[in-house]
Design a protein around this nucleic acid. Structure first.
Lengths: 163, 163
DNA sequence: TTTTATGTACAGTTTATTCTGTATGAAAAT
DNA sequence: ATTTTCATACAGAATAAACTGTACATAAAA
C-alpha cells in the first residue's frame, strides 16, 4: 500500500516541476523526462524511463539525446552493465541557467551580426534606394540592432555563480 | 524600380528580426507581424497587414490580439476612420523584457506555490509513506523548490530601467 | 564466428497547432 | 430603417510536431 502512494507523489511533483522546465524551451516530454530523472536521483536506462513514463524507447532515446546536448543529463558508465544509464545533472540552477543563457547569447549575437550586414549593404548601395523611405528603415534597423545589443549584454551579465 | 527594392529589404530585416522575437515565446507569425509593424513604424489596419504578409485577415486579428495582450502593440484611434489601427510599441527592449520577465516571475512563483503545498501535505501524512524512500523524495522536492526560488529572484533582479 | 542485446535512423501515424473561409453581430453610413 | 463595413467566433483544412514500430548497425556474449 506504500509503493503506489510514493509513485503517485512522484508523478505529482514531476508534473508540476515539468511545467517550469518547459519555460527553458524543453518540449513537454523532455521536461517530464528530466523531472522524472531528477526526482529518481539515480541513473536510469532507456527501458526504465520508457516504462516509467509510458512512452516508447525510441522516444526516450531522442529525448535523452536532446537533454544531453543541453548538458542537463549525463551518461553514466557502469562496468559490467551493457545498457546505457543516464542521470540528471544535480546542479539544477546552474545547469539550466547556463544552457539557457548561452542559447540566448549565441542566438542574439548571431542575429545581430546578420542585421549589421544588412545595414552595411544598405550603406554601400544607398544610391539605389529612394532616400526618403530608406531613411526611416535605416533608423528602425539601427534600433533593432541596438535591441539585440542590449539583450546580449543583459544575458551576459546573468552569468551564474557556483551553487 | 525603387519601391520593390525597399520592400525586399524590409522583408529581409523582418525575417531576421522575427527570429529573435520568437525567443520571447512569440509564434512565428506573431513574430513576423510584430517585426513588420515595427519596421513600418506607422499604425496599420488588419487589411494592410494581411495583404503585406499574405495571410488572412482572421489570422491577423488573432495575432494582433495576442500581441496586444502582451502589451507589445497598441490600438490607435484615428478620428473619422472606421478601421482599427495598430502600432508596434516603440520601446523594444523595455516592452519585451517586461513582458518576458513578468511571465517568468508569475509562472515560477505559481509553480513554487504548488510545490510547497505538496511538500506540506507530505509532512502532514508522513506516517503514510515508507520513511526510507520518502526521505529522498522530500530532499529532491526541497531542491526543486529552491530552484524555483532562485529563478524568481534572478528575474526579479532583472527589472528593466527606462530607455 | 555466431548469437544476442542495445541504441537509433527512418517512415508512417497520431496528435496538436496554425491558418483560412464563412457566418454573425456590432457599429457606422446611407 | 436599411445597407454597408468592420472585427471576430467558429468549424474545418492545412501544416507542423511528437510519437511509435520496424529495421538495421554496432558491440558485447556465447
Amino acid at each position: 500500500m506504500k509503493q503506489p502512494r510514493t509513485e503517485q507523489l512522484t508523478d505529482k511533483i514531476m508534473q508540476e516541476f515539468a511545467k517550469t522546465l518547459e519555460m527553458f524551451d524543453l518540449s513537454p516530454s523532455e521536461a517530464r523526462l528530466f523531472a522524472y530523472l531528477y526526482i529518481s536521483e539515480k541513473a536510469l536506462t532507456l527501458d526504465e524511463m520508457a516504462s516509467a513514463l509510458g512512452k516508447s524507447k525510441t522516444s526516450m532515446s531522442t529525448n535523452i539525446r536532446s537533454l544531453s546536448d543541453l548538458n542537463l543529463v549525463t551518461r553514466i558508465w557502469k562496468k559490467g552493465v551493457r545498457k546505457d544509464h543516464y542521470q540528471a545533472n544535480s546542479q539544477l540552477f546552474k545547469a539550466f541557467m547556463n544552457s539557457y543563457i548561452s542559447r540566448w547569447v549565441d542566438a542574439t549575437s548571431h542575429q545581430k551580426q546578420s542585421l549589421k550586414e544588412i545595414n552595411l549593404s544598405i550603406d554601400e548601395n544607398k544610391s539605389a534606394y529612394s532616400s526618403e523611405e530608406i531613411k526611416t528603415i535605416e533608423e528602425r534597423l539601427e534600433d533593432i540592432i541596438d535591441f539585440h545589443r542590449r539583450i546580449e549584454l543583459l544575458f551576459k551579465e546573468m552569468k551564474v555563480e557556483e551553487k
